[in-house]
Design a binder for these strands. Structure first.
Length: 594
RNA sequence: GGAGGCGUAGCGAAGCUGGUUAUCGCGCCGGCCUGUCAAGCCGGAGAUCGCGGGUUCGAUCCCCGUCGCUUCCGCCA
């Protein structure tokens, strides 16, 4: 076998190599037996090369070639030969040449495949995950995994250039309340006690700041025990960093430069190095989302000024109860959007709590359809306020501010997809900032941290934050791109006194704070530097760069949405012996009677 | 926890308003073929129509239930 070890890969050979005797190792990608002459496309990570078996081969070799099936793993020795002009395959990177086979070793055979590696249609997801090793052989997945590697490398390269240290933090840590549910790991040596898997390296990286490692980064595995989605997995990868003696401007700069570097190095794409900044309120108010897709346009218009002039009760009622009326113009959509299609949009709005979706169309004669009749006398005013032109569709949402914004925002993103308003090659980053630090929890009638409890209130609220917590803005920020939240970060609290006040506002008992993260508070008493940082989702970034909308397409071994992995069948029951050793007893969940 | 969608050979799909032998493409098996490159041609095997129940003379199709997957809401940075 040793003598059939590869001397070239399937992606590298060209006319320059003519006459070379090479050994290729790879998989039979396609198999075309013409009787007299037999071609195989041999594939490895680097590409595909055609191998020819013809009359110049000895009969024994030809016979062995005839037995090849798809995805056999083989070694081929042969001579690189230039194809005659008429047989050059321009669609193939190595299409100028082929290998005239001299020797063939079948390294391993392959059973009938559960799905085609080279198919034009994809198998269903469960099957793809069950046979992930085969799925990963597909060209698309090979490209995704390669890009992911390149991104991850470019990230490290960039941090290294800036003098950051890569420091690992533990993944068996103390469970902390708030935020997402923790994955728990029983501690065998201390029965009744548990570790948690980290949701982020947050506390540890802050402590590293106290230790003086003023520029830290880590490409960290994080865990959250919450329901999965297309863009959410149990375990995921965060590019996490933290710096001391910085303001948010320094952090923005690191991230902006890093994105420029990463996109240049991996996709050879030039990203505009300064990202626009939008306040949380403006993002919600004009795009109906705290992660707006800026490629779409269609900004919301405040329609309140015209409401009192018309006799439309629904809008009036919304304003009278302190709500808002928002309008959104969908350019050129009037002819295409039938009553039925509009009611589909309405359904989208309703899943976000809207009661309905009002609309009208702009025609050559004025306003038409939907609620047009109520505004007919105001045609010109409607047009000038909204900027709508002939053939435009105008959508209206009347509700309390938040519901109006989020539901119309959902309609906006759906229209963006339906009308293909977003250029998939365009990457539009933006910073969203000025988030409220606290939000009111209706159910428990208390203030909750909107982000986490370690974010610094903005300076001007410091003295009076107890008076009106709802008004307090935090020194925290999100990085959004094309409708996805990619990152979030903040300047952290490094003053134990401020930290105590935050705990007290959100009703987090001091003893519990001491119990949960006393170690952090204690660390802060020993000369804690001001610091801040950010973490962004590596999976998410790569997903967007690949033009995918599911993380599963860029993670080698992901889980399905029920949290199982069809390949290894995890999670799975464990032996009673294992449980006994841990002092754990499984109590079946009581079946609820109806 | 809630809403929508899907489940038909190994894979991807079709199957009209319920009707007798459930189609098509890929793959698989056999044969032919000296220039293909998603090779081609001929032949063949392969399906408890997710599962259970109901309506009906008759169900892949209609109804109820159930399981699995999926998208979304809730939840989650």
């Amino acid at each position: 076998m040793e003598k059939m070890k590869r001397t070239a890969t399937c992606g590298e050979l060209s006319a320059r190599d003519e006459g070379r005797d090479v050994i290729l190792n790879g998989w039979v990608h396609r198999n075309r037996d013409h009787g007299g002459v037999h071609f195989i496309n041999l594939r490895d990570r680097y590409g595909i090369t055609q191998v020819v078996f013809d009359d110049t081969c000895d009969p024994d070799l030809k016979e062995r070639a005839a037995s090849l099936k798809m995805e056999y793993c083989v070694a081929v020795r042969g001579t690189v030969s230039k194809r005659p002009d008429s047989m050059i395959n321009k669609d193939m990177a190595t299409g100028e040449i082929e290998i005239a086979a001299k020797e063939l070793v079948i390294l391993t055979t392959c059973e009938t495949l559960p799905f085609m590696i080279d198919g034009d249609s994809e198998a269903n997801e469960t099957l793809r995950l069950k046979y992930r090793y085969l799925d990963l052989r597909r060209e698309k997945m090979q490209k995704h995994i390669a890009l992911r590697h390149k991104v991850s490398f470019a990230v490290r390269e960039h941090f290294e250039g800036l003098g950051f240290y890569d420091i690992e933090t533990p993944t068996l840590i103390k469970s902390t309340p708030e935020g997402a549910r923790d994955f728990l790991v029983p501690a065998r040596m201390q029965p009744g006690k548990f570790f948690a898997l980290p949701q982020s390296p947050q506390l540890y990286k802050q402590i590293l700041m106290v230790s003086g490692f003023d520029k830290y980064f880590q490409i960290a595995h994080c865990y959250r025990d919450e329901d999965l989605r297309g863009d959410r997995q149990f375990e995921f990868t965060q590019v996490d960093f933290e710096m001391s003696f910085v303001s948010k401007e320094d952090i923005f700069k690191v991230v902006e430069d890093q994105m420029v570097h990463v996109f240049k190095k991996t996709l050879n794409k030039d990203i505009v190095p300064t990202f626009p900044r939008i306040t949380y309120h403006d993002a919600m108010n004009t795009y109906g989302s705290d992660k707006p897709d800026l490629r779409i346009g269609m900004e919301f218009i405040d329609f309140a000024p015209l409401v009192p002039k018309a006799d439309f009760g629904v809008f009036k009622a919304a304003l009278e109860s302190g709500g808002t009326v928002k309008a959104m113009v969908v350019p050129g959509a009037a002819p295409e959007y039938s009553r039925k299609k509009i009611s589909e949009l309405e359904e989208t709005a309703k899943t976000y709590g809207a009661k309905g979706l009002a609309w009208m169309k702009v025609t050559a004669d004025g306003l038409d359809g939907g609620i047009a009749k109520f505004f007919a006398p105001l045609t010109e005013e409607v047009k000038s306020l909204t900027g709508a032109k002939e053939n435009d569709l105008i959508l209206f949402m009347a509700s309390d501010w938040k519901t109006a914004c989020t539901s119309l925002g959902a309609v906006r993103s759906r229209l963006g997809k339906d009308l293909k308003l977003a250029d998939p090659e365009d990457y539009r980053f933006a910073w969203v900032y000025d988030f409220p630090l606290f939000e009111w929890n209706e159910d428990e009638e208390k203030w909750d941290p909107a982000h986490h409890m370690f974010s610094m209130p903005q300076y001007e609220y410091l003295d009076s934050m107890e008076e009106n917590p709802g008004e307090v803005k935090g020194d925290l920020y999100d990085l959004v791109i094309n409708g996805y939240e990619l990152a979030s970060g903040s300047i952290r609290i490094h003053d134990p006194e401020i930290q105590k006040r935050i705990f007290s506002i959100v009703g987090f008992p001091e003893e519990e704070a001491e119990e949960r993260f006393g170690f952090l508070l204690e660390a802060f008493r020993y000369g804690a530097p001001p610091h801040g940082g950010l973490a962004y989702g590596l999976d998410r970034l790569v997903m967007l760069m690949c033009g995918e909308d599911s993380l599963k397409e860029v993670i080698a071994f992901p889980r399905n949405n029920t949290g199982s992995n069809p390949m290894d069948d995890s999670p799975a029951p464990v032996d009673k012996i294992q449980l006994d050793e841990l002092g754990i007893q499984f109590i079946p969940r009581e079946t609820e009677e109806k």
